[in-house]
Design a protein around this nucleic acid. Structure first.
Lengths: 339, 339
DNA sequence: CTGAAAGCGCTTACAG
DNA sequence: CTGAAAGCGCTTACAG
C-alpha cells in the first residue's frame, strides 16, 4: 500500500505538495500536479480515509440510524430498497459513504457512534415512534435528517411525502367515482404518515361537503391483519360505507379480503383505495387503486438536505421537504361513472 | 470531545494504560481499570475509530458491495430488509459496522474503497452476473463472502440456500398432489439460484421416474412478466402441463395470472408452486405454495463466515454455507388427494 | 503492571 | 507555488 510519502519521494516533492494535488489542486502547478497524478495511478495510491479523518475531523461518512424493530414487532418499510439505493447514490455523488449504525445499544449509542467515527451527519429511518436516542441525537447539533418523522433541533430536518395531499386525492377520486359514504382505515396516530393521512381524509370530506362521522374512522396498524379487522368493524355498521380509504396498502389488501369474505363485491359494493403503491398492489386481484410516493426522490432529498448542512457548518436546518405523490387508479375504486 | 490524553491526565496514568483498559483489560490492575472506566463514563470518552484504524490497520468495518442495478434493469432482492437487518445485527454483535460501498465506479472501485477505508472484509449482494470488479476483489485476498453466488479466491466464500433441495421438494409435493406433467419456469441460467433450482427440478423428476421433456422447461427472468409469458408458452403446448414449478414467486404469480386469463382453474387445471415466499405470496388469491428461505439465517451465516476469516489472517475461506429451506403449502398446489 | 517513545498517514498553518 | 514541522488520537513493542 503506497503512502503519501512514497509518492512524494518518487516525485521529488514534499508530502504537503502531494496532499495539495488531492485536496486543493489549483494550489499547485499543472506540471507537478500531473506528475503526481501519474505516479499515483502507477503506484495505485489512494489516500487513507482514517488518516484524513483524523487530521480533518471530517469523515465524509454519514450514519444510517435504522431502527430495525428491536423495540417492537417487525416494522417494515414499504420501499426500503429504493430508498437505500437512492440515498446511497445521491450521497456517493457528493463523495459521502453510508455507515449502518447498529441499533439496540444504550440510549446514546447513536451519538457515541457519531463521535467515535467522526460522522458528518446521520439519517434516521424508523417507525415514527419517538426513540429517545434519536431525539437526543437530533438535539445534539449534528446534522440529522429523518424520514417521515418531524424532528426538532437546529440542525435537524426531515423529508416526507405529501401524505395529506395524497389522502385527499384518494378521497376525491372515490367521490368522483360516485361514492358518498367514505370511511377510512387510519394508520397509527403516533406516526407522522398515519396522522397526516387522516388529516387529509378529514379535510377532503369537509371540502366535499360530506359529513364527518366518527364511526367511519377506525385505526389500523399498517399491516394486513389490522386492515382486515378494521374492515370488519366498518362492515358491521348500521350504515355501511360504500368506499374506504386505507392509509396503507397492506391494510387495503386486508380490507378487500374482508369485504370479499363477507360476500361483498369490490368495487361494486365497496370501493377501496390504499397508500404507498407497494409491489403487491398491482399483483392482487382486483388490483389496488392507491397513492404512489416518489421513491427515487426520497434518497435524493435526504442527501441534499444533509449535505447542505454539512457544507455550511453554520447553516441552520433547511425546512422540511415534502415530496409530491401520485394517484394510481386501478380496479378497486371502480369504473368511471357513465355519462 | 475527550481524548485518551485527557483521560490519562485525569486518572494520573499514561495513555498506554488507558489504551490497555480498552483493548486488553486483563493487562491492568483492577483498581486502575475501574478508575479509568469511571472517568471515561464521566467524560463521555469514546475511543476514536479512525485513530485506532490508523494505528492498527484494522477498521472493524465491513464493506457492503451492493450492486444496485446500475448495469442492468432494476434487480430486486426478494428479502433485502431481513437480509440487511440480519447482517447488521450479527456483525454488530461482534463489533463490526457495515459500510455501504458506492457502486458504478471504475472497475476496481471496490478494491480501492477497501484500501482507502482499511476495510476488514466485504460482502457482495448482486444479481449473480459476473461483475469484474467483484471478481477482482474476491481474488485480491481480502475476506469476501457473497450471497447466492459462487466466488473463487483463497479468502472468498459464499452463502446460499439449498436451491436444488427446495426445487426438489416443490416438485415432489406437486407429484404427491397427483400431478404427473410437471413443467418448470426457470430463472436465468447465469444466476446461481436459477441454475440450481433447475438442476433440482431435473433431479427430482428423474428420481420420481418422470420423463424430462425439453418443452417443459422454459426460462424466465424472475419477474412477473417473464412468468406470464413463459406460462403462455407452456399452455400452448400440445400436451399441456398439469403443474408448474416456477423458480421465483413473481414468476409464479405471473404464471397463475396467465392460466386464469386462459380460462383455466388454478389449482384445478394446473397447479403452481413458486420459490422465495415473498410477501405477496400469501396475499394473492389463490395463495401461493412456495419454498421459503431462512431469511434470518443469511445475515448470521455471512457474518460468521466473514468473521472467521478476519479473526485468523492465515485462515483460508470456510466452505460455502448452504441454508435449509422449507416448503410452504398454500392453495395453488391443490388439496391433498382423497384416499 | 506501567510508562516513554515511535509510528500509523494524513492536513494545514506558517515561512519563504 | 513549495517545504518543514506540528498535530490529529490512538497502539504497541521495548524497558523497567
Amino acid at each position: 500500500m503506497a503512502t503519501i510519502r512514497d509518492l512524494a519521494r518518487r516525485c521529488g516533492v514534499s508530502v504537503a505538495t502531494v496532499s495539495r494535488v488531492f485536496n486543493n489542486p489549483d494550489a499547485v502547478t499543472r506540471e507537478t500536479r500531473e506528475a503526481v497524478l501519474r505516479a499515483a495511478a502507477l503506484l495505485g495510491y489512494t489516500p487513507s480515509a482514517p488518516a484524513r479523518t483524523l487530521a480533518t475531523k471530517r469523515s465524509r461518512m454519514v450514519g444510517l440510524a435504522w431502527d430495525t424493530g428491536h423495540r417492537g414487532p417487525g416494522w417494515r418499510h414499504p420501499f426500503l430498497q429504493e430508498l437505500l439505493v437512492g440515498l446511497k447514490t445521491a450521497l456517493s455523488e457528493r463523495g459521502y459513504h453510508l455507515l449502518m449504525l447498529a441499533t439496540g445499544e444504550d440510549a446514546d449509542g447513536h451519538l457515541r457512534a457519531v463521535r467515535r467515527h467522526s460522522l458528518d451527519g446521520v439519517v434516521f429511518i424508523d417507525d415514527g415512534t419517538a426513540d429517545p436516542a434519536l431525539t437526543r441525537l437530533a438535539e445534539s447539533g449534528v446534522p440529522c435528517v429523518s424520514l417521515d418523522r418531524p424532528v426538532t433541533g437546529r440542525r435537524a430536518t426531515y423529508v416526507t411525502s405529501d401524505n395529506a395531499g395524497g389522502a385527499g386525492a384518494a378521497v376525491r377520486h372515490l367521490y368522483e367515482r360516485g361514492r358518498r359514504r367514505i370511511a377510512t382505515i387510519a394508520g397509527p396516530g403516533r406516526t407522522h404518515p398515519g396522522a397526516e393521512r387522516l388529516a387529509g381524509y378529514r379535510a377532503a370530506l369537509a371540502a366535499l361537503g360530506l359529513p364527518l362521522r366518527d364511526e367511519y374512522v377506525v385505526e389500523g396498524d399498517f399491516y394486513l391483519g389490522g386492515g382486515h379487522a378494521a374492515m370488519r368493524r366498518l362492515l358491521a355498521l348500521d350504515e355501511c360505507p360504500d368506499a374506504v380509504f386505507a392509509a396503507g396498502d397492506e391494510m387495503a389488501v386486508g380490507a378487500v379480503r374482508a369485504a370479499l369474505e363477507a360476500g361483498l363485491d369490490v368495487p361494486g359494493d365497496v370501493a377501496v383505495a390504499g397508500f404507498d403503491d407497494i409491489e403487491p398492489a398491482s399483483l392482487v386481484r382486483p388490483a389496488l387503486t392507491t397513492v404512489a410516493q416518489d421513491r427515487a426522490g426520497f434518497g435524493a432529498a435526504v442527501a441534499a438536505a444533509l449535505i447542505s448542512m454539512i457544507d455550511d457548518p453554520d447553516a441552520a436546518a433547511p425546512p422540511p421537504t415534502v415530496l409530491p405523490v401520485r394517484l394510481v387508479v386501478r380496479e378497486t375504486s371502480g369504473p368511471p361513472r357513465a355519462g
